[in-house]
Design a protein around this nucleic acid. Structure first.
Lengths: 254, 254
DNA sequence: CGTTGACGTTGACGTGACGTCAACGTCTTA
DNA sequence: TAAGACGTTGACGTCACGTCAACGTCAACG
């Protein structure tokens, strides 16, 4: 048999057979005078065994080990390991399909475009609170979506604890809307506008009402806020800065 | 923000961020005087969006398309496609896990070692017919395992149709055992031994009893058999050759 | 006899989404 | 001033092959 016949017999490509030779997983058969590899039944049986192992999910390295050890008691181990791995993959796929179904549902409902892939929790929150269409609210939406994607679990959890409480109380929501209205009025204001200070106080009180635990991680520094103020008008940014200072001051010596 | 801070914020590596720049999936931010990239909120929001899409299963190319098209109505399409793909993967995993469970079961039963990964059909057959421990029977076992792994479905199906019938009839099985006994007696015989011809006839009749349909593919040639006779004694190989000739002659002008 | 086309040989490069390392520059802190 | 943490670019590795190049071999055809 030549390589093409062997490969066709087992349903693989000739490249695969040569690759197995290269990897030492299938012994090289003798060559004919013209240099062609000449295969016999032993090779076909060996290749079949390799293929069965690979199709069970073994890597080529694992298959080589199983074949090399005649006394290979490792096979059940390896198989159990592969099964555990497949089980994990199966769970992951199910989780991802569930998320996909949610997103797909929302995509067909056809609402909020750039936030359509956010977490269900956040989408639910955004739907409930109906932030106004102002630029300041858009900034806050971006911030929320960012927190939603953030890696650090404690920050995320703290944020969503607050959001749940806000969403649950209509009076709180209307206070939030008032805050946005007043923040919007500062769009063209100077950074020393007198309306800034009271609004910052309102923000601090409003937030502290819900953040009973430490709202900031231990390595918090004010300049970490700066990159996220991009997109706000100077006076608006100043409100956030001062509000954060209030909160840090009020909580630091806990 | 510098690249490490941005990466930590979203829970990816700096390599990933730079890779996204390289792939044009995330715009390069301005550089500081020292050459460091300086990120702002816009970048964080953009990266968060990319990550959400990627975590949903989009490839980077797909994510780039979705992000580039503002009017991208493709997202539902892509998501549906991904879901179909995941569904297929899920089915494949379930099938593989079922096969793994079977093999693992047999591995723990701890019997037939080199055939432990064969298909359930074949394992069942081997268990039923209890081939003798002779070398000729070992050869046949190898051949069966080979056919079990063969790519061509018609050949496989024909073979297993025969095997099912053999396994079902005890009298047929005893005739098979007699055949092996007589074949074993030829282990040391010369290739012109007089016992060869009648045994070849027995093989042909035995096999033709079950192979009512054409037993050979249309491009069958006798020399295709040769590689598989390796491992048999010369006289034994001659039995197979002559038996195949009988079968081909008896069926060719159908 | 030459040509065509199928098959064989080796070797190199590509795949996807990064990880890892090298060799170097920059910044902060002790 | 030295160390160590962070930044920069660039190159190579991953896994199981697919694909292509450049070439040799062989059977069949006109």
């Amino acid at each position: 048999m030549r390589i093409g016949e062997l490969a066709a017999l087992l349903g693989v490509s000739t490249r695969t057979v040569r690759y197995y030779h290269h990897q030492g997983i299938l012994p090289e058969p003798p060559r004919l005078a013209n240099g062609y590899r000449e295969y016999g039944m032993r090779d076909a049986v060996a290749l079949a065994r390799v293929r069965r192992l690979v199709e069970l999910g073994l890597s080529l390295d694992e298959a080589r080990d199983v074949i090399a050890d005649d006394e290979s008691r490792e096979l059940p181990e390896i198989l159990a390991e592969i099964d555990a791995d497949l089980a994990r993959q199966e769970r992951e796929i199910q989780i991802r399909r569930a998320r996909l179904a949610e997103v797909l549902q929302r995509a067909q409902d056809g609402t909020l475009r750039p936030y359509d892939t956010a977490s269900p929790d956040l989408v639910e929150f955004l739907r409930q609170v109906e932030l106004p269409a102002s630029s300041a609210a858009a900034w806050d939406r971006d911030l929320l979506v960012l927190m939603d994607s953030m890696a650090a679990p404690p920050a995320r959890e703290r944020a969503f604890t607050v959001l749940d409480q806000v969403a649950a109380d209509p009076e709180t929501r209307s206070r939030g809307q008032e805050f946005y209205r007043r923040l919007d009025e500062l769009a063209e204001a100077e950074p020393d506008d007198p309306r800034i200070a009271p609004l910052a106080k309102m923000l601090a009180e409003y937030t502290l009402t819900y953040m009973l635990a430490d709202p900031a991680p231990p390595d918090w520094r004010p300049e970490m806020l700066e990159p996220f103020l991009e997109g706000l008008a100077p006076a608006q940014a100043e409100v956030i800065r001062q509000g954060m200072r209030h909160m840090s001051a009020g909580k630091r010596p806990r």
